[in-house]
């Protein structure tokens, strides 16, 4: 799941300066699950903006709306008409939604209400954790399913660095050392010998360093 969190109100207030009519557009996808951009969050943000603007002595018209997903054209395309009267569309989807609206609705001024943070999992209520970096070259089979690229501070490939102590990462005692975990996991799986293998230098092209990534499935193409 894509994890996102709402930008600060201050930032958003600045963002909508000069607008008289805006639409706050939620998404019932990932951001709704991570409680960043669902219906509820749309209402909250709308109230907060009204409040904030009224404190500045301004009053704008805010319309609240939530799409099923903002990453599919069928939901986005109607906006060309529906939102044409608005000065801005404040999207509460992940970055994908914002980009998609921007791509498909040429005349609409789209603004991001959220910071898209990582691909993570919900550890418990209110806690999400990065699990994947989307690097495009998954090595999880070698590491007991634990990603050193996303979860090691230095994205090490060949075991824990010298800063690993007591299972903690050197950068922060709250951060577990993923390589300790990998070591432990592999040991439990009796695969610890695999740690002796040297993981070769990585190809970062699939991690975005080779340019915007695109995926095509021929069989599904129209």
């Amino acid at each position: 799941m894509i994890i996102a969190e709402r930008k600060t109100l201050k930032e958003l207030l600045e963002m909508v300066q000069g607008c008289n009519r805006i639409m706050i557009l939620g998404c019932r996808g990932c951001v709704a699950v991570c409680s960043a951009g669902g219906d509820k969050e749309v209402s909250i943000l709308a109230s907060a903006l009204r409040l904030g603007l009224s404190r500045q002595g301004k009053e704008i018209e805010i319309q609240e709306r939530t799409l099923v997903r903002q990453c599919d054209p069928e939901y986005i395309d109607p906006l060309n008409e529906e939102a044409s009267d608005f000065d801005a569309v404040l999207s509460m989807a992940c970055g994908v939604g914002v980009n998609f609206i921007a791509d498909r609705c040429e005349d609409i001024n789209v603004l991001p209400a959220l910071n898209t943070t990582f691909y993570g999992a919900n550890l418990s209520s209110g806690e999400w954790k990065e699990m994947c970096a989307g690097c495009g070259a998954c090595v999880l089979h070698l590491t007991g399913g634990l990603c050193p690229v996303a979860r090691c501070a230095k994205s090490l490939s060949n075991g824990p660095c010298g800063g690993s102590q007591g299972g903690r990462c050197e950068i922060n005692p709250d951060v577990p050392c993923i390589w300790q975990q990998i070591y432990d996991k592999l040991s439990r799986l009796n695969r610890s010998d695999e740690m002796k293998n040297i993981m070769p230098i990585r190809d970062w092209t699939q991690a975005g360093h080779g340019g915007p990534r695109r995926r095509i499935r021929e069989d599904l193409l129209p």
Partner: peptide, 28 residues
């Protein structure tokens, strides 16, 4: 060396490159 994480230094906002780790560097 892989190098100390930039978090410890005077430019913690820096983008750590870590294109490779020390072992891969040795190989290289």
């Amino acid at each position: 060396l892989t190098g100390d994480h930039q978090k410890f230094g005077n430019h913690p906002q820096a983008k750590g490159v870590f294109d490779m780790d020390s072992i891969q560097l040795l190989q290289m």
